[in-house]
Amino acid sequence: MTEPDALTCKELVEIVTDYVEGAMPETERRRFDDHLALCPGCRNYVEQMRSTVEAVGAAREERIPAETRDALLAAFRDWKHQS
């Protein structure tokens, strides 16, 4: 982690999304992986980012007010009968 071209932790957290999204050029990806291999803090960080994405995915709520739903279905019916 002391080589001049090595990635610092502070830099890593700003490019983690490129890494997770698979949008990183091969050489940069290697630098990133090299850093991870030596740095438990950044391994935790990447893991937390992945967990965050999954938790956000699970935060979805599906609720449509019954009266809205009924009104929309009625509109659909009416329009079809007209046409």
């Binding site: 610092t8 932790c9 502070k10 740095c39 803090g41 960080y45």
Partner: peptide, 8 residues
């Protein structure tokens, strides 16, 4: 470790 975690 400049730029490394102080509070990981």
């Amino acid at each position: 470790w400049p730029g490394g975690w102080a509070d990981p």
